[in-house]
């Protein structure tokens, strides 16, 4: 067992427990976008930050990847943590506003303004889909390519992968595919988006990448009326 201090409590956890798991176990909520219990931790979204150490030597680490260590002093809700989290959420809103998960999280953490320029990304590169495919579906149909700002998710050779069994696991887990709730004030009350959709994957590939019906793109509002129907 490992002994550490979590928000002032002396706690004991099993070896190989991460700080996020420890906090969860003790009922402390930490926001996490790229984490899923069933998948290996990845440390990409940086929302699960916690502060470790004290005084001048304290620093922020992602709790989903950081292993519990003897004597570690962990604080999950310091001013520094909350400031960083809020700014990251603001950045998420500015980057991928169509995600319901992100919108919900922003509201929950009191992020009400966005000072950055608006972008409309459809993917936040959290890697959940890649890990879902590889670790739970035993496929390796999708992965990352490029680094830095050019990084993105794709299938090998940008072609429909032989490995893909069309299970839809990737879409199920994607936090960016959860369309924003439009609310009763929506300008156009009739959406109809799921009728006659051209799935956005057809912008990139020769054939549809899955046979989810309806295509979740409707919820994204990115699908357009098209000649193509299933």
């Amino acid at each position: 067992m490992i002994n550490l201090t979590l928000n002032g409590m002396e706690i004991k956890v099993e070896k190989r427990t991460t700080l996020l798991e420890a906090a969860k176990f003790y009922g402390i909520e930490i926001p996490a976008l790229c984490y899923d219990e069933a998948l290996s931790p990845y440390g990409a979204c940086r929302l699960c930050l916690v502060e470790i150490g004290t005084g001048n030597h304290s620093r922020l680490v992602s709790s989903c990847t950081y292993p519990a260590r003897d004597g570690l002093i962990v604080r999950t809700h310091t001013e520094r943590v909350i400031k960083a989290r809020k700014l990251l959420l603001e950045l998420y809103l500015a980057t991928c506003p169509s995600s319901r998960t992100i919108q919900d999280m922003a509201s929950k953490h009191g992020v009400t303004t966005v000072r950055f320029k608006q972008k409309n990304e459809e993917c936040i590169l959290c890697g959940l889909c890649v890990r879902m495919c590889a670790e739970q579906m035993q496929g390796k149909a999708i992965g990352f390519v490029n680094r830095g700002i050019k990084r993105r998710i794709t299938a090998p050779f940008a072609k429909k992968s032989e490995e893909c069994r069309l299970c839809g696991g990737c879409m199920y887990i994607c936090p960016a595919c959860q369309a924003r709730c439009q609310g009763p004030q929506e300008e156009n009350p009739v959406c109809n988006a799921c009728l006659n959709l051209s799935p956005p994957c057809l912008d990139y590939f020769q054939e549809a990448m899955c046979y989810m019906d309806p295509c979740v793109a409707c919820e994204l509002g990115t699908g357009r009326k098209a000649k193509f129907t299933y």
């Binding site: 990409a44 990251l88 320029k117 590169l125 680094r147 050019k150």
Partner: peptide, 20 residues
């Protein structure tokens, strides 16, 4: 912006927004 590996949202998007 090009040399970051691009995994961390804070690094990838953060650098690109600082640049912006």
């Amino acid at each position: 912006e090009d040399e970051s590996c691009g995994r961390c949202f804070s690094c990838r998007e953060g650098i690109s927004r600082m640049l912006e």
